[in-house]
Design a protein around this nucleic acid. Sequence first.
DNA 1: GCAATTCGTGCAAACGATTGCATAAAGGAG
DNA 2: CTCCTTTATGCAATCGTTTGCACGAATTGC
Lengths: 339, 339
Amino acid sequence: MAVTIKDIAKKVGVSPSTVSRVINGNAVISEETKKKIVSVMEELDYHPNSLARNLANGNAYAVGLVIDAQDEHTFSNAFFNRSVYAIETVAQNHGYNLLITNDRDMAGTSAVEKLVLEKKVDGIILPTSSVTVKLVKLLKDNNFPFVVLGEPRIDGKDVSWVDINNEMGSEIAVKHLKENGYKRVSILVENRKTVFARNRIEGYVKSVKAYGLAYSEEYIVDCGTEMERISSIIKDMLVRDNPPDAFLCSNNMIAYQVLKELKSQNISVPREIGLVTFDNYPIAEYMDPPLTVVDVDTFSLGEQAASTLLNKIRRVEQGNQQIAISPSLIERDSSKRGK
Amino acid sequence: MAVTIKDIAKKVGVSPSTVSRVINGNAVISEETKKKIVSVMEELDYHPNSLARNLANGNAYAVGLVIDAQDEHTFSNAFFNRSVYAIETVAQNHGYNLLITNDRDMAGTSAVEKLVLEKKVDGIILPTSSVTVKLVKLLKDNNFPFVVLGEPRIDGKDVSWVDINNEMGSEIAVKHLKENGYKRVSILVENRKTVFARNRIEGYVKSVKAYGLAYSEEYIVDCGTEMERISSIIKDMLVRDNPPDAFLCSNNMIAYQVLKELKSQNISVPREIGLVTFDNYPIAEYMDPPLTVVDVDTFSLGEQAASTLLNKIRRVEQGNQQIAISPSLIERDSSKRGK
DNA sequence: GCAATTCGTGCAAACGATTGCATAAAGGAG
DNA sequence: CTCCTTTATGCAATCGTTTGCACGAATTGC
């Protein structure tokens, strides 16, 4: 077996408690014994056993991150990487590890519930898709720290969450398009039912009206993810009266498809039609023309989520936090017609 | 405090050991007591405390996955998501949790070493980039289970690893190009120094020779990641004698850039020049023309890594495993000239 | 009908830390 | 010089499970 606190104690000739106190630095120990203990710890290559420590402290020193494997699009890859990195970094800095789990069902209790009830983590970060009334009740009943990634469909005011400011994202995009002389902006979202699509549409409507741009229900389109469908929607729109002269796309794939359709019709971007998309995938920069994007600092997203969670874990009073990360516009050619 | 095994024992009128044995199902307990215990567990909503269980068992019931935040390209996003999902799934199925960490240095010991020495995980999956002589020695000295994701630069035969069969990837790509009548295939890699680029080149050289296609050192190009550089390399190659009539690209971004350059020169793909790329990003399917790709089952990659690791954790004798996942070719238009 | 098994359960010692309380030694006040 | 703090350390319980050993009761074999 590995070397324990007792081995150290025996070798130095003190009690285990003293060694423990040196390790934790939470009591006054004479310089002399402290030095001896530290040197023996090094000599024997001692490392505290976290399993024992966790039990004694009643903490797992871990935070859980639930991922939704189904949901490959909303929690897209790019999001995932940077945010996870941020969460892990913040957690690590506070002495916590990051435990990742899928929210699958296993014999009655979900994996998430298990994590909570069996005390495998001290707090948890959930995607909105995992937020159910049942789970929230469980967490609240147990006074268990949690933070939602994305604005939840339910209980929005009663929980802490961190999200992208989608409304603002639309606003800066519309403002930019307006400043570049576009008059009839259409917004294409993947699924109108999601909270983030609703928020984007809301911001879009608000600023289209504020800037006195053309407004029509027909400009708000739920185009799904199927590429053929997107093409045919674009085709249809362009032959109607008052066709859009700009598109705000909810993601890079939609933008890519729109661009392809426009090219095939020999419509020039940005001269005839402008294009802005949410999300800054590596490829956006290299498209022809390079795409103007609404970019989100996903690192910051994860960072905020993790900090909020850790404050809850350490019982720092902060109430429920609703944090919306401001996106920024990266201006590229696809929307630059000048005035 | 939460309800414990003792509360159950007291209420039923048995000893804690009996309750424990019912939970673990590792001893003969009479049906009668078993039933009583189970019903009281449900009544009191008992859930075992994993911290205590871990200590008693000397297991963390967790596996560690080290990610390399630097290395955004080799461990690309797409890889990450599916593989992590697979690893988590396999781990979960065996009652293990997944702990993710960055390999950062913190006050002398690396985060990974901490995980191992403090027994926060029972086994670990490492990217090749984290494989150092020092770490491998530590792991081996402690007889600590680990598996490398990707073929390591060092100690390849002495450790277990799981990787994509990159050599084979090149082979099936070259074979396909040959069958479509291309004679002068060039391979573009991002960084010749990486093991996987070397393997791809090796497979490429082998099959180019085997199929009697044109071979020249000039067809093997380290093009880096900079888009302008890629364009100019392509330009250069096309004006030389015996210009390539097909490109095998090491990733989608390179392929995208090559395609762009060819289009700008009005060179038809696949009629004049064929294109095949490693990795199947969502966008590859929708490019114009859709790209033929060497696709890798990244789920299976993670799955194999996790299974191998879990076997080690459970001391199943298997020796060191070197597993190469076979890629497959998804034929699309960019390489289909017919014969 | 008696010895030898098998079955079901309890006791108590782990697992390796942490920590409240007690206490001896040292220092300070009067 | 005595009494009261303060300082440094030890004792032992605790965190919630697991598990080897023991032991009485029930079963089996002959």
